[in-house]
Design a protein around this nucleic acid. Structure first.
Lengths: 351, 351
DNA sequence: AAACAAATTTACATCGTTGTAAATTACACT
DNA sequence: AGTGTAATTTACAACGATGTAAATTTGTTT
């Protein structure tokens, strides 16, 4: 009773129609639960469908409807704690809306990122949710495609595109103020990555600075730690150099959890206690934050909200909404854990 | 110079043909780099393609060729360190072979898992790589579909399917022997999860047992810690209860990294040192192992090899290979880190 | 220059479904 | 019973590409 009888071709709509003695359109109507079908017809057709093991061919359906019911999610890497939870949430949100998700890995490569939007082939997906790592607003502005796109993340994007992000500057400010609330005065930022032109770090730095200034603290540029690359190793090197060169700080705000956890490991190796001597805050609230030692306080974007909103906005575009790009700020909060505990329980720095 | 001129429909093959004054088939030939096309023709057509901004419609192509060049990857959750690296590797391997990957999350739900194979719609993908969490060999045997499938992971699968896994029993044995090499005699296993009928744990337990027996150690069933669910919390509860009830052990082999890292946290909270008092080994060698404290020794399946092989086997099936299921053992090794260090550097248990 | 073979190009049917609009049937009301 | 209207069902032409096989052009050989 399988889809094909030995060696014969797949069962088509027309085969069901013949078997049931009706037109193909009626079978189609039954398949789609069209309401104006008499119960007799319906059950007769359903019986044939069952007996023949008919399954609709999605490709043919797509060709005539022009809809794929698929969206692409373009992210730098799947194997990254933040992006994998983002992917998870977006897949769930899409499935709720009867869409499927195609993952496109751009590997943080600007050519691959542009390819995603250049859209060399048509009819693959109905729309794209795109979190760029390298590509700049200028690159994007040149590309004017007709596939709907929703941008995620902190990169500046052309106003033409819908865009969802958290208020990076405000979030950094909240994080800095939390550290200040713990009595920390000299607060470092890890890290300013060489060649990172995506703009995320700049915004976080701006918030970091504003947080300090609002509290009447001076901004010391030697506390903005420069990092060679996005690898945890180079983050460790940066922190280590700072310590070796005698730069003192009691708080550390990191641009992401990977850097933060690397910093935790380094501080431990150097015999510096967290949070007693240096309180640390990460960014993204990934799985790493839950399992590190000490557990990591982290800026926590509401991924659920981002995913739901992104899918919603994209579907609106797919369904024909026009007009210039919408710009949405997603909610976030600071997830407090041991590395920068709640203010009440805070002990003053010991050094 | 974009794909569509204001408001007009998409450019089709036939539009290019008319513009260039040739037949549609010639345009198609140029698009596909068919060799028997004169240079004149080719450049004339390419010019038209460029000027009109033509992009081939994948759906139409698929309908006539019957190929989607997409494969599905069905996994319990994207947001899991092991599965996200698996997804990453499979996407890369597939892209290398000119396939795209559709991620299907089964949420460890047996209905959803069956749905993946029941294949309610045809022509979505050319084949499926499927790592089940719940579904048993029996459930699967009933389903006889024509979409090629490659199974991953430790669940028993019907002989009809191709299947790739690491030798769980042997790997567990290696891990246990490593602990024994560190001088540990009482070695516990975390954990036997209630309701886990996927068979993975059973095989690991078998290897655990064999490793002990080979070393002439007795197998104490109270050292096989029962866990209520797959959550880290329940793993912690299980370890805690064992300690509270006076069960003593110097080595701990865990069924996955999440459990292992949860155990590390609990041991720390209990004031038990790792690896001095209890050496711990995880499984899957996920990102957690790199960032935990202490860093985690873990059984490390060669994900790269698994992904490449899975894609290779699936494509062979897609291209028509018939015959009964092939069963492949993938390579693995024990990634040594601090929680169960290399034998040389090992210190004897202190308690 | 004719004849044949090989290399290009073309015409046309086809993939399997759904949209449109026309044809039919069923139903209600004089 | 006859007519008008609404509810079903159907016929047929798309959707946009590629495969097949035939038609044409080009090139070679005698």
């Amino acid at each position: 009773m399988s889809g094909t009888v030995n060696g014969s071709r797949r069962v088509r709509l027309v085969d069901v129609a013949r078997h049931a003695g009706v037109s193909t359109k009626t079978v189609s109507n039954v398949v789609h639960n069209y309401e104006h079908v008499t119960p007799d017809m319906r059950s007769k057709v359903q019986k044939s469908i069952r007996e023949l093991g008919y399954k609709p061919n999605l490709t043919a359906r797509r060709l005539v409807t022009g809809k794929t019911s698929m969206i692409a999610l373009a992210i730098p890497e799947t194997n990254h704690p933040y992006f994998s939870s983002l992917a998870d949430a977006i897949v769930k949100a899409a499935v709720d809306r009867d869409y499927r998700v195609l993952i496109e890995q751009t590997d943080g490569d600007s050519e691959k990122e542009l390819d995603v939007l250049r859209d060399r082939e048509a009819g693959l997906v109905d729309g794209v949710i795109f979190q760029p790592a390298k590509v700049t607003s200028l690159d994007l502005a040149e590309i004017q495609e007709d596939t709907p796109v929703v941008m995620l993340g902190e990169a500046a994007s052309p106003i033409a595109f819908d865009h969802i992000m958290i208020d990076n500057s405000a979030a950094a400010e909240v994080a800095v103020k939390h550290l200040i609330g713990l009595g920390r005065k000299r607060i470092a930022f890890l890290g300013d990555v060489r060649g990172d032109n995506a703009g995320a770090t700049k915004k976080r730095l701006a918030g970091y600075q504003k947080g300090l200034e609002d509290a009447g603290l001076s901004v010391d540029t030697s506390l903005v730690l420069q990092v060679e690359s996005f690898s945890p190793e180079s983050a460790k090197v940066a922190v280590q150099e700072a310590i070796r060169s005698g730069i003192e700080f009691e708080g550390l705000l990191c641009r992401d959890d990977r850097f933060a956890v690397a910093a935790l490991q380094l501080l431990r190796d150097e015999g510096i206690s967290t949070p007693e001597q240096i309180a640390v805050i990460g960014w993204d609230d990934t799985v790493l934050a839950r399992y590190s030692y000490p557990t990591l306080t982290s800026v926590s974007p509401n991924i659920q909200a981002i995913a739901t909103e992104a899918v919603q906005m994209l579907i609106e575009r797919i369904e024909g909404l026009t007009g210039s790009g919408r710009h949405v700020l997603a909610p976030y909060n600071l997830h407090i854990r041991e590395s920068a505990p709640a203010v009440k329980a805070a002990s003053a720095p010991k050094n």
